[in-house]
Write a protein that binds this DNA or RNA. Structure first.
Length: 545
RNA sequence: GCGCCCGUAGCUCAGUUGGAUAGAGUGCUUGACUACGAAUCAAGAGGUCGCAGGUUCGAAUCCUGCCGGGCGCGCCA
């Protein structure tokens, strides 16, 4: 929450120094950053290093001139020149009450302090085929997408989370035919599961369920109508199961977008029509000249048999994100889809959308381990295949936290044994324990002053904790703008670590009344911050464990 | 062959638009509870940031080449 005012102060100091010394170079691009080593202060600016070259001066010399003209608010204790010419700044105690009071008043608003967002974002993730239970391969994307959505919303964006339901293609047709075949089997008639059909146990379950509910004249209907009836019924069943799974997992979608209804109302034709000028006919097919927009080769929109490719309705779907009023589309895709990004971006550009407003986050694969052994995800081996089975095994809190510990663009090893372990080895418990521990202290504390004298918080552990709390708004801003929800787990762990260290060296209860009140408020503010981070992660924040 | 992602401590990984002595967890060694939760804390050991060049006052970070791993390159979805 201080980097913004610091940047302004430094810029103004530079301008005053320039006016006095006759520098003609404008304010250079420079960074306000947090040094790794606390000995170097709380913030550092490299403006002198950046300005030295255009000014033909030594960096330290520039720094000295700037320092002369620097005017800082009372939140800062002062500034000094260090190393090759960094300006280092140290916070004063004056900011303590501002941070603690703000956190206690409204932790959400506090975390959003530095965010200046306000875009309309459509965030699409998971979008798994509706032909089976949600598979564990979607679990990571579900966790990342849901938390990213919460984070972007907290940052001030108008976010719609969306699940694209591929309910139109051959896949659901096959599901319906598979169910029908199983139904024949249940009735004791000879049958054959279609070659590309679905074989999971759930298909048998569905067949049984359908048979129990099927309308009386079902047998008399023509084949095509029967398939349609089963298809519609099966899609509703899968939707219910999907919603139950997602709810257990704490994942919320604002909208489920049906490919079928989009196609039925001519959405694909409309978007393809608007691509005119970028398309051509060749070999009986309709092609989109994506190479005009950076793709490797042109892509077919409509096959020579007159059917659209998968690409065409998908262009229409993405186009609809813009026509529905969103200015930015963010997709989470598996690494097997990365070849697809360039052509979709090309299509968006051809439609007149800013290609930069279409963002794709590739969520890399997860490898499941058990005590370090790689797990095959085969049903036959009795291993975990669905998200439900994963949640049965390790629970929502551990699953979400572990998925969000790593950057989404690196492959992840997920150790099932570790996830189940309720010990300090499991980072989710480490963070939750800090939250519960504070709850326990507050239960025992009784009444205490709401606005005590925070200048009593002088221990190194208290100061470290306060600095971390004060820096949260900047961290949140960066996590949101970089689309890196995994930073939240690190922040939560660091806060928990700072609190545990504080707790071990600073008695909160049973010390002098004013000191106790100051420490209690700090603990309570920390709890609010950890609670808010856990909420963003979709992990529960227990009062007791 | 071409394209994208990745390569950091024994292991799993952080590392902010290039910044100061490269960090954390885990594992290993050692210490801390007759007062707030020991699911905790403190200390120590552990590194050729895949390799080689280049740009820069400064490179784990940017550029080039090479090595290694993953994924993709259909009128499939």
């Amino acid at each position: 929450m201080f980097s913004k005012e610091l940047r302004l102060a430094v810029e103004q100091a530079y301008l005053r120094a320039a006016a006095e010394a006759g520098w003609t170079a404008p304010v250079p691009a420079f960074a306000i950053e947090r040094p790794k080593d606390a000995k170097m202060g709380d913030y550092a600016a490299n403006i002198a290093l950046q300005a030295a070259k255009p000014l033909h001066l030594a960096p330290r010399q520039v720094a000295e001139r700037i320092l002369l003209h620097l005017e800082l608010s009372e939140d800062f204790a002062g500034a000094e020149i260090a190393g090759p010419g960094f300006l280092n700044f140290r916070l004063s105690q004056a900011f303590y009450p501002r941070v603690i009071d703000a956190l206690l008043e409204d932790a959400t608003a506090f975390l959003a302090t530095d965010c200046e967002a306000g875009e309309r974002i459509l965030l699409e993730f998971v979008s798994a085929n509706p032909t089976g239970p949600l598979n564990v391969v979607s679990a990571r994307a579900a966790a990342v997408g849901d938390t990213l959505g919460r984070l972007l919303r907290l940052a001030g964006h108008d976010v719609l989370t969306e699940f694209y339901v591929n309910d139109a293609g051959r896949q659901v047709e096959m599901l319906a035919r598979s169910i029908l075949a199983r139904r024949e089997e249940l009735l004791g008639r000879p049958c054959e599961i279609p070659e590309d059909g679905y074989h999971g146990d759930y298909v048998v379950e569905l067949a049984r369920g359908f048979q129990a509910q099927e309308p009386g004249d079902f047998e008399g209907q023509p084949e095509a109508e029967r398939v349609e009836a089963v298809k519609a019924w099966a899609l509703r069943q899968m939707e219910e199961r999907r919603l139950r799974t997602l709810e257990r997992y704490g994942v919320h979608f604002d909208n489920f977008f049906s490919e079928k209804s989009f196609r039925d109302r001519g959405g694909t034709e409309e978007s393809v029509g608007r691509l005119k000028g970028h398309t051509y006919e060749a070999e009986g097919a309709l092609w989109l000249r994506t190479t005009d927009f950076g793709d490797d080769k042109d892509r077919v929109l409509r096959k020579s048999d007159g059917e659209f490719t998968y690409f065409a309705p998908d262009i229409g779907y993405h186009d609809s994100k813009y026509s529905r009023g969103y200015t930015r589309a963010i997709d989470l895709l598996g690494p097997d889809h990365h070849g697809y990004v360039a052509r979709m971006r090309a299509a968006m550009e051809a439609l007149g959308h800013d290609p930069g407003s279409f963002e794709v986050l590739l969520v890399q694969w997860v490898r499941f381990l058990n005590h370090g052994e790689v797990q095959s995800m085969s049903k036959r081996a009795g291993e975990i295949v669905t998200i439900d089975e994963l949640l049965d095994d390790v629970g929502t809190d551990a699953a979400r936290f572990l998925f969000l510990m790593r950057s989404h663009d690196t492959p992840l090893d997920f150790d099932l044994a570790l996830a189940k372990e309720e010990s300090s080895d499991n980072p989710v418990y480490y963070v939750q324990y800090a939250h519960a521990r504070i709850a326990s202290i507050l239960r025992q504390a009784g009444e205490f002053a709401a606005r005590p004298d925070y200048s009593l918080l002088t221990s190194p552990e208290a100061e470290d904790l306060l600095r971390r709390l004060g820096q949260l708004p900047e961290e949140i801003r960066d996590a949101a703008s970089h689309r890196e929800p995994h930073r939240l787990t690190r922040l939560a762990m660091e806060l928990a670590q700072a609190f545990h260290a504080f707790y071990n060296r600073n008695r909160v209860l049973g010390v002098e009344e004013n000191l106790s009140a100051a420490r209690l408020n700090l603990a309570k503010a920390t709890q609010a911050a950890i609670g808010q981070l856990l909420w963003l992660l979709g992990v529960s924040a227990p009062e007791r464990m």
